[in-house]
Simulated assay, not measured.
Amino acid sequence: MNLRILKSAVTNPWFNLATEDWIFQALDAHSHTLFLWRNSETVVIGRSQNPWVECKIDKMEADDVFLARRQSGGGAVFHDLGNTNFTFLSPKDSYDQEANFTIIINALKKLGIDAELSGRNDMQVGERKISGNAFKHAADRSFHHGTLLVNANMQKLGDYLNPHPLKLKAKGIKSVRARVANLVEFNKDINHENLSDAIIEAFCEYYGETAPVEELDEASLAKQPTLNKYYEQMADWDWRFGKTPEFSHHIETRFDWGIIDMHLDVKQAIITEVVIFSDALNVELIDLLQQTLAGVKYNKDDIKARFDELSQRYPELTAQIDDVSKWLIGEMEG
């Protein structure tokens, strides 16, 4: 059986997740394929997760942290250049999950680290988790994706994940954290390059074959129309935010002109229904606020733009509209 080895020179997570999709959907499944990659600072959420519940969106934007949504399920994870990611693709009839874990464990041995399989999905050194894994199967192919913590910034995970819950009653999966360790704790000289080399070596040794390493970069997008299509999907706002399961957002506050008790229903990241209870004297204002928010993307820039238009149309209500605009956007940012 042929081997194929792909290595990404790109750290854009949308490119790398698109490449994974391309490997899974479009690549010839008659060979054992290994893909190695890593991402710039990114929060990757599972297919059924709500980014507003899982992440501090505004802090991520301020710090140029990517948000990516996987095709597969599971919880939110933080990636940075200290994470090495690996993907195995095999024909279904010769897929061997144990073989994949053996290859990674053998690679770590080459670097003086004794790792073992823990449960079905994780690898650990001693009691500490160093790798999480996920699997996907189609009619003719099977896919195993994992991440190795090399020198990841554990603190950053807390910086961008789990904001205060914003009273969001959300469907989907919440993330949990495990006891984890970086591989540099066990070998201070380990890095993405020498770990990748060790994995490639262990892969070739296991199958008794060799293959050239194909370096993927932005030029690969141009050569592969399918890959480019997957990239555009991964980068698209509608995929990253719009695919969120429906949720409701209930917030209330008191202004000097009245109480606002606001209920928003959000479906596919569009505000579908708005109910506002208020003791404000101006009933027209409340009606206008409800009409303005209905149908808008649940996105602070779109909401602000709508409120700005409204206050231009009703200059006599500008002060109240601005109050509500600042408050709602502040609540969305957490």
Rank of each mutant, 00 (worst) to 15 (best):
R313Q: 14
L3H: 00
W239H: 03
H192V: 02
Y206G: 07
N2R: 11
V266P: 04
N100H: 14
F143W: 12
L34Y: 07
H79K: 10
T253Q: 09
P212I: 03
L34V: 08
A26V: 15
H144C: 01
N162W: 08
V184C: 05
R69N: 04
K326S: 11
Y160M: 08
L288W: 11
V43G: 14
A198M: 03
V266F: 00
A26E: 14
T244E: 05
F203P: 07
G158N: 10
A18C: 10
H263V: 06
Y206Q: 06
S72D: 01
S196N: 07
L317S: 08
T87K: 13
L67G: 08
E331P: 02
Y314L: 01
D159V: 13
A280W: 14
K109W: 04
Q224Y: 15
Q224H: 15
I57R: 06
S248V: 06
G242P: 09
Q320W: 11
N100W: 02
E246Q: 08
D140Q: 05
M60D: 04
N83F: 11
T87V: 15
F86Y: 15
L108P: 13
F247V: 07
N39Y: 12
A305D: 03
A222R: 15
L168V: 15
E316R: 13
L168K: 09
N85T: 10
T33L: 12
R120A: 05
